[in-house]
Design a protein around this nucleic acid. Structure first.
Length: 424
RNA sequence: GGAGGAGUGGCCGAGCGGCCGAAGGCGGCACCCUGCUAAGGUGUUAUACCUCUAACAGGGGUAUCGAGGGUUCGAAUCCCUCCUCCUCCGCCA
């Protein structure tokens, strides 16, 4: 959410930003509603001031007649005030609804573009490996090894769900522990968060919990949804709080399951583990001062790259263009790993600087030394999204016989050098 | 799930239906004093929004004492619902 005053005073710039991002938001409507709200508020506050005045006067008035007159006027106000309040409430509800559609501002250096085809590659690491044989994709590899079972997932739960078996279980746990160890050493507080969160936390972080275009599973008859990422709970943990400046930056490494309906995503490149409804992820999250956030963003991207270099997986880094930023991001970088099964790079991590966009909605502020509270900045980045990392790992490190050699750094975490069929 | 208790400012903690945005303490800030340090003294210190104004300086106003309703001329204070936390019992991984 953007600051209402900023929107009113910079309607032109906000409109241009919406256009750059390809977002349909009615800025004029927001401004109109904001004006209406101000007018109502002024009228209402005037009446309330009179009401308070009267109440105070009644307490002091000794003359019975005068007292009765004061109470009479007060009773009249008591009728009118709720009517205005109701109208104000309606206007504010509508205003918030429209205001939420307006995306965050954009970093001046973010590339302008309409969709992911206009994202800008900024660097590459590693060369796609030449196999001396026809490489298989992770679905073939996983099923042949008996370690990824889509049929069982589909039977018990539905398509795009899966069982991990045998060495894949150890691989998931090893990847998670590998990431946690690395982040713990970089000053990230380890956290396992709830896998569900209140709708307010989803809205606050820029997700749409319910409705036709939602990507979120919500629980009926409650205000809870399954989280799409621990970003939601990690951001929400400080909702409505004011933290001391000295405690910033504050870094978290959050482990959670992630749930996504992926509505409308069928038919696209989504074979196997690439686009699933549930996966495990270690997420980086940070609260910073406005001055610290760009540096923190670079730090997160650096860690993401380091992880994939350590896993010996070729990747490229992409600067996400305006049309592909989503609502909350001011700037976003993706790391895309080489996936031999696709003969292409595929997104494995994403890191965003959301500036004060989430903090405003969630009410998270910090107190500068001796100053008034200011909104802080929030950032997030993927350390390891297990499912997609598993794709890259299996496909890049496969051998002709269908077994998979683990990168050295992972061996102690998985307890194996080679992934093979489960023990019978 | 059952029975009790509690939710107040950055933190702790008072609070008779009107004089309470709220005592007191801690912490913070400013100044004073003490040759350093420690201690002490005085003052100050919630947030958002509206409005006057050249003003992010001041003045005025509204709201906020877990949330939402209600009673009342008037609610932190009374009533209802919900949420959260604590204690005890039951159940359970």
């Amino acid at each position: 959410m953007l600051d209402l005053r900023y929107i009113r005073e910079n309607a032109g710039a906000v409109k241009k930003n919406c256009a750059d991002r390809g977002v349909e938001a009615d800025v004029d409507l927001v401004v109109g509603l904001a004006d209406r709200r101000s007018a109502l508020l002024q009228e209402l506050e005037g009446l309330r001031a009179r009401q308070n005045q009267l109440a105070k006067a009644v307490g002091k008035e000794r003359d019975e007649g005068a007292r009765a007159r004061l109470i009479e006027e007060s009773r009249e106000l008591k009728e009118r005030i709720p009517e205005l309040e109701e109208e104000l409430h309606r206007v504010e509800e509508r205003l918030t609804e429209e205001q939420l559609k307006i995306p965050n501002l954009t970093h001046p250096e973010a590339p302008i573009g309409k969709d992911d085809s206009e994202n800008v590659e900024i660097r590459r690491w590693g060369e796609p490996k030449e196999f001396g044989f026809e490489p298989k994709d992770h679905v073939e590899l996983g099923e042949a090894l008996g370690i990824i079972d889509f049929d069982a997932g589909a039977k018990t739960t539905g398509s795009k769900f899966y069982f991990l078996r045998g060495d894949a279980v150890l691989l998931e746990l090893g990847l998670v522990r590998f990431a946690l160890d690395l982040l713990s050493g970089r000053g990230y507080e380890l956290a396992m968060t709830p896998d569900l969160a209140r709708d307010r936390m989803l809205l606050g972080t820029g997700f749409v919990p319910r409705g036709p275009e939602t990507q979120i599973y919500s629980v009926e008859d409650t205000d809870l949804s399954l989280i799409a990422t621990a970003e939601i709970t990690l951001a929400g943990q400080l909702a409505d709080e004011i933290v001391e400046e000295g405690s910033l930056p504050r870094r978290f490494a959050g482990l959670s399951h992630c749930f996504r309906t992926e509505a409308g995503a069928h038919g696209r490149a989504s074979r196997g583990l690439y686009r699933v409804h549930q996966f495990t992820k270690v997420e980086m999250f940070a609260f910073t001062t406005p001055e610290q956030s760009e540096e923190m963003h670079r730090e997160m991207l650096g860690i993401e790259e380091e992880i994939f270099r350590t896993l010996e997986i070729p990747y490229r880094v992409v600067d996400i263009c305006t049309g592909d930023l989503g609502a909350a991001a001011y700037r976003k970088y993706d790391v895309e790993a080489w996936m031999p099964g696709r003969r292409d790079y595929g997104e494995v991590t994403s890191t965003s600087n959301t500036t004060d966009y989430q903090a405003r909605r969630l009410g998270i502020r910090y107190r500068p030394e001796g100053g008034r509270p200011r909104l802080l900045h929030t950032l997030n980045g993927t350390a390891i999204a297990v499912s997609r990392t598993m794709i890259a790992l299996l496909e890049n490190h496969q051998r002709e016989d269908g077994s998979v050699v683990l990168p050295e750094a992972l061996v102690p975490y998985v307890g194996r050098e080679v992934l093979g069929p489960p023990h019978r």
